[in-house]
Structure formats: C-alpha cells, structure tokens
Simulated assay, not measured.
Amino acid sequence: MNARASKKNESTSWYDHPQYFDMVFRDETADEVAFFQEVFEKYLTRPAKRLYEPGCGSGRLVAAMAAKGFDVVAVDNNAAMLAYLRRRLSRRGLDAELVLGDMTSHVCQPLVDAAFCTFNTFRHLTDGDSAERHLRSLARSLRRGGVYILGFHCIPLDADPNCTERWKAAHAGTQVSVTLRVIDFQRRRRLETLRVSIKATKPSGIIERIRSEFSLRLYTPTQAQKLLESVSDIFEIAGIYDFDCDIDQERKIDEDLTDAVFVLRKK
C-alpha cells in the first residue's frame, strides 16, 4: 500500500485527540467569548478579572479568555487535553492555571469572579449526586455575586432518540469529518450513549480513524429546573438564554428550551 494512502485504525477516546476535538468546535469560540463578556457586564457588580472553566477540554475558551487579559483557571481530568492546552498557550505567549482534577470537587483558591461550562460538558456527570456536587463545589469557587454560565442540551419529551449529527472541519491541511450518533437512549435511566466516529485526512495523505463511545445524562427542561432548584440555597437563576448567545434574547424554562444556557449567580 502506498504510504501516502495508508490508513491507521483505532478505537479510543476522541478526548485523547485534542487537535480533532478542537477543530470541530473552534468556529463557536468568538461568539461564546463575546457572550461571556456581555454576561459579565450585565450580571456582575464588579469587573470580572479571574475566571474558571471546569472540564476545559482542549482549552479553546481558556486561550481566548486569557488573550482578552483574564486570569483563567482551567480544570480537566484528561492529561492529553491539558498538555495540548499548555502547548497552545505557550505558542501564543499566554498563561493560565491548569489543573488535572475532578470538576465535582475542585475548589479554586483564590476565588473567581465568574465561571463557564458550555456545550454539554456538564452532562458527562451521569448521575444526580455528581451534578449537584459539581454545582456546590463550583459555588465554593465563586465570590459572592459571581456568575456561572452553564450550557447544555435539554431533551424534550417528544425527542427522536435516533439522532445523528455530522460536522466537517479543516485546519493546516488536515481535513476532519465527524459523525455523532445516539446508539442507546434510556429515558427512564436518564442516559444516552453516543458514538463519535472521526475520519482525519492529513496533508501527507495518511488517514486516521477514531471511534469513541461515551454516556451523557439526559435532562428535560423540567428536570434541569428541578436540579437548579436543589441548589437554590446557593444559586439564583439570574438569566436564561440559548445557544444563539444573544444577550438581548432571554428565554424561560419551558418545553421549547432545548439548547439551554443558564446564568447562575451566587447568593
């Protein structure tokens, strides 16, 4: 077989390949960063200086906020992701506090002014106890009056469990195709299992294929509301938005809220 057309096949976690994970979502970064800054201006009573991202992944948002001059703390439980982020920050002459740790228990010291966790990272906490532990430890990381921007998909009662999404991305000559498919959906157990299939074609012509499966917790809008009510002693819902990240378009919790972004403020 021609070396330029050779193929490498493996079954592993796509989170161990930060470069591909990052390529898929990088186009969302500018809108999210602008939204974060609008949230800070609208909901904080003091300027935001120190930020925290639990479950930071490849760190696209960490690097973007550090480039804006913020002091950022980033926590993830995947060493490959943090190593990728460390190299990214170094290339750009940026700095952040990177912690290999658990988002259900980590507490920032000194405290932070705001935190953010978007695009379903929160749903990797697959049981209610873990979700609540995370929210309470996050609150311990925030100054009083600080905000937590928490975004995740909610599943309506009439949701089609046979969901497939596809993306394509390219960077530095590498072409990536990603297929995300729901392979198991258990509404009663509140779990769905997803399979991610990646085909990466490198400039050399070598093709790398990765297949990964993982579980996410299911939330209806009502279940999301009940979870947030369980921590109402420490958080208030200051604002609700969707993934359009439009600060002028507030939402409410109803069955149409499928792409939810909650702005939680520490009491």
Rank of each mutant, 00 (worst) to 15 (best):
138 L>H: 05
107 V>L: 12
146 G>W: 11
162 N>G: 15
124 H>P: 00
114 A>N: 07
129 D>P: 00
162 N>R: 08
97 E>P: 01
116 F>K: 05
150 L>T: 00
132 E>K: 09
113 D>N: 15
127 D>Y: 05
154 C>K: 09
144 R>P: 12
148 Y>H: 15
119 F>I: 04
141 S>L: 01
119 F>T: 00
138 L>M: 15
121 T>A: 06
100 L>N: 13
116 F>V: 10
136 R>M: 04
139 A>S: 12
133 R>D: 14
141 S>K: 02
105 S>P: 07
141 S>T: 00
120 N>S: 10
161 P>N: 14
133 R>C: 11
121 T>D: 09
145 G>E: 14
123 R>H: 01
107 V>G: 14
107 V>T: 15
123 R>P: 01
112 V>A: 07
114 A>K: 06
152 F>T: 00
106 H>G: 09
122 F>D: 06
132 E>P: 02
135 L>V: 09
100 L>K: 10
94 L>H: 13
125 L>C: 06
110 P>R: 15
145 G>T: 11
126 T>N: 06
157 L>S: 12
109 Q>K: 08
110 P>D: 14
131 A>Q: 15
126 T>V: 10
150 L>F: 08
159 A>K: 11
133 R>S: 08
145 G>I: 11
129 D>S: 09
150 L>W: 00
112 V>F: 07
162 N>K: 07
147 V>S: 08
104 T>P: 02
134 H>G: 00
126 T>A: 02
141 S>M: 03
127 D>L: 01
134 H>S: 01
137 S>Q: 11
100 L>T: 09
116 F>S: 13
142 L>Y: 06
142 L>W: 05
153 H>N: 04
157 L>M: 07
160 D>L: 01
141 S>N: 04
147 V>E: 11
94 L>R: 14
130 S>G: 10
152 F>K: 01
136 R>H: 04
117 C>D: 13
104 T>Y: 03
113 D>E: 09
126 T>G: 02
95 D>N: 06
107 V>N: 11
154 C>H: 10
145 G>D: 10
155 I>Q: 12
111 L>G: 03
111 L>Y: 06
108 C>F: 02
115 A>I: 05
105 S>M: 08
144 R>H: 11
127 D>G: 02
160 D>E: 04
105 S>D: 14
133 R>L: 15
136 R>W: 03
108 C>E: 12
156 P>Y: 03
105 S>R: 11
123 R>Y: 00
148 Y>T: 09
108 C>N: 06
153 H>M: 02
154 C>P: 07
155 I>Y: 13
139 A>V: 01
97 E>A: 08
140 R>C: 10
106 H>C: 12
155 I>A: 09
140 R>M: 14
